[in-house]
């Protein structure tokens, strides 16, 4: 039975006519089955990178070909797709991918996190809590968290197989001895289900806690590296840290200049050539919805000096 869906999307979109001459969602059915089998394996072994026969896609690598293949193999005619890039729905990358699926699958698209059944993302997790009826698909450039320190692929496999992750802590140790704290701000490694160390893709570490026991299914696709991995719903995801240097997320000394949000990830916007700055939500949908509900920031007063501190200070926000 077809779900009736009335769109009231912020941007245009909706169901457009499907392009002739392509299979539904571009990939042939056999390839989609192969990818779905890979996804099932990945779900069965949370955090483990499963190799798959990545296909050439009509977009260059680096544009999320891994994520696109996952989305293509999952999307059905009743799905509603949201695509974000750094939190925004309107960047070239996000627009291209959305257009790709509305043309090849006639997919309904939305910018509203709550409405989406599939959210494909590059570098952010939406601020809105995801639900058990949603799937989030991450675009992954480098899936192997151990590679930076152990270039031998065979040794890396063995380290995962035997759960030998001492080397990850060497990296954190080096950070602390050099910078006085764990400096890694993006792609901060996590331990999934107390078993596999996993790269969360280049999301800010701010988003790491959202992965922990998330009700939505989390899927990760690396096209160039030909790997798919997954975090099933409600799975434990722990950011690596030391007892005396616990994991902490970024905090800002101010609120979103547009919506006044005090607990979202903020982007720094340069306002003019005198260097005045403004901080606004990176998640544009979250920000717009708050503004629509009447929340306000103090956008008249751009912040003069950027101060991002770690783990300090509560903000008093609207």
């Amino acid at each position: 039975m077809k779900k009736q869906f009335n769109r009231q999307s912020e941007t245009g979109g909706g169901r457009s006519s499907v392009m002739e001459g392509y299979n539904f969602a571009y990939l042939d059915e056999q390839t989609k089955r192969m990818i779905r089998r890979t996804i099932l394996k990945a779900v069965a072994i949370p955090g483990y990178q499963v190799p798959f026969g990545s296909r050439e896609m009509p977009l260059p690598y680096g544009w999320g070909t891994g994520g696109i293949q996952i989305t293509a193999s999952l999307i059905g005619s009743e799905d509603i797709l949201k695509v974000i890039d750094q939190g925004a729905d309107d960047t070239t990358n996000a627009v291209s991918i959305r257009r790709f699926f509305s043309r090849t699958a006639g997919a309904l698209t939305t910018t509203r996190t709550r409405e989406a059944t599939i959210i494909q993302t590059r570098h952010r997790i939406p601020e809105t809590h995801l639900t058990k009826d949603q799937i989030i698909v991450y675009q992954v450039p480098i899936p192997e968290p151990l590679r930076f320190i152990e270039p031998r692929a065979k040794e890396v496999c063995r380290m995962h197989a035997l759960k030998e992750y001492g080397i990850m802590f060497v990296k954190l140790y080096e950070d602390i001895s050099r910078h006085g704290r764990i400096a890694k701000a993006f792609d901060y490694p996590v331990l999934v289900n107390d078993r596999y160390v996993m790269s969360p893709s280049p999301i800010p570490k701010f988003d790491n806690p959202k992965m922990d026991r998330m009700p939505a299914l989390q899927l990760f696709g690396a096209g160039r590296e030909k790997r798919i991995y997954a975090v099933p719903p409600y799975t434990k995801v722990k950011s690596l840290d030391f007892e005396d240097y616990p994991f902490e997320v970024e905090r800002w000394p101010h609120c979103c200049a547009l919506c006044g949000s005090g607990n979202s990830y903020l982007d720094e916007i340069i306002m003019d050539d005198r260097g005045s700055k403004m901080f606004i939500c990176s998640d544009t949908n979250h920000c717009n919805e708050r503004v629509a509900r009447g929340h306000k920031g103090n956008q008249e007063e751009p912040v003069e000096k950027a101060q991002i501190s770690i783990g300090t200070g509560a903000r008093k926000c609207a």
């Binding site: 060497v170 001895s177 030391f242 007892e243 005396d244």
Partner: peptide, 21 residues
């Protein structure tokens, strides 16, 4: 390319020590 301290600490951390100090 890992500091002397990191080189010495690796086996400790591999064996489960999770305290930087």
């Amino acid at each position: 390319h890992v500091s002397a301290g990191g080189n010495i600490g690796e086996r400790l951390m591999a064996n489960g020590l999770r305290h930087y100090g």
